[in-house]
Every structure is written in C-alpha cells, then in structure tokens.
C-alpha cells in the first residue's frame, strides 16, 4: 500500500461508520440520540479532515512494508470464527481440541517430529481438560 492509501482507507472507514451511526438515530428519543449523533459527527469530521490532510500535505516517505501472509491470515481467522460458531453445536472440549490442532498446524513453519507432535497434543489436551474441569467444577461455569 502506498503511503497515502492507509490514511485514505482510515478516513473512509471513519466517514462510513459515522454516516451509518447517524442514519440509525431517527427512531431514537431526543436524549437517546445525543451520543450516537455526537460520535457519528466526530467520526465523519475526523475522516474528512484526515482525508483532506492526506491529500494536501506532501507525500510522506514510504514506511517499511509489514509482513503479510494472506493464506495464513485467512486460515487463522477462519479457525477462530469456526471455533466460536462451533462452541455450541460441538461442545467446549471437542471444538477447542480441533481448533487448537488447526491453529498449531497453521503456526507451524518447520517439520515436526513425532515426539514433538505427541508433546504438543498431550499439552493441548491437558490444557483443555484442565480448564474444562476448572470452569465446570471449581467456578461453576456451565460449558457448552
């Protein structure tokens, strides 16, 4: 991304969120809409000002590029979302076990030996079972 693209995207986000916030205030009471309206206006003004400054000021030096690994990002987000959505249907232990294995595979960059895999699996299973016991038996938190 060029040096001007990021602030422009941020300003578009600010303006879009602000317009959305304002568009939803019609059915609210007079006092109930004060804060959403104020926050929406701040977001829009901030976004417009940022865009204007970005366009008007000299082009800043390009910053160091951030590392990016799109397949890993998508896979991580998919696992996290899937984990959250599967908590109820699969249950705490099964969904956590599957997701932990999936995340370990995504984070892996070098081949792992059998011993290492066994240790990872044992520690992961121990962690899940320990917290399942702690939550359900000690803290009386009902688990899905």
């Amino acid at each position: 991304m060029g040096p001007r693209v990021k602030p422009i995207i941020a300003s578009v986000i600010g303006v879009a969120v602000g317009i959305f916030a304002l568009s939803q205030t019609a059915p609210m009471s007079e006092l109930g809409r004060v804060f959403p309206t104020t926050a929406g206006i701040i977001a829009i003004v901030g976004g417009v000002a940022l865009a204007a400054l970005t366009v008007l000021r000299p082009v800043p030096a390009a910053s160091l590029s951030e590392p990016s690994d799109v397949p890993r990002v998508i896979a991580t987000c998919a696992v996290l979302l899937g984990w959250a959505l599967l908590l109820d249907p699969l249950g705490f232990i099964a969904s956590s076990g599957l997701s932990i294995v999936a995340l370990a595979l995504i984070a892996r960059r070098e081949p792992m030996g059998l011993k290492s895999i066994a240790i990872h699996l044992a520690v992961g299973a121990g962690l899940v079972l320990l917290f399942a016991f702690l939550l359900s038996q000690v803290l009386n938190v009902s688990l899905p």
Partner: peptide, 26 residues
C-alpha cells in the same frame, strides 16, 4: 506452534467465562 493455540484458547476461556455466553466469544 504451542503458544498460538494456547493464547487463543485462553482468550476463548476468558471471553466465555464471564457470563457463560458463546455470543460473547463470537
């Protein structure tokens, strides 16, 4: 390979345990 799943697991536990609500995790 161990830290990422462990931290993710603790965040799920933390988000869920407050009100035992899976929507909070989402």
């Amino acid at each position: 390979t161990a830290l990422v799943p462990a931290i993710a697991f603790l965040t799920f536990v933390g988000a869920y345990a407050i009100e035992a609500n899976t929507v909070h995790v989402l």
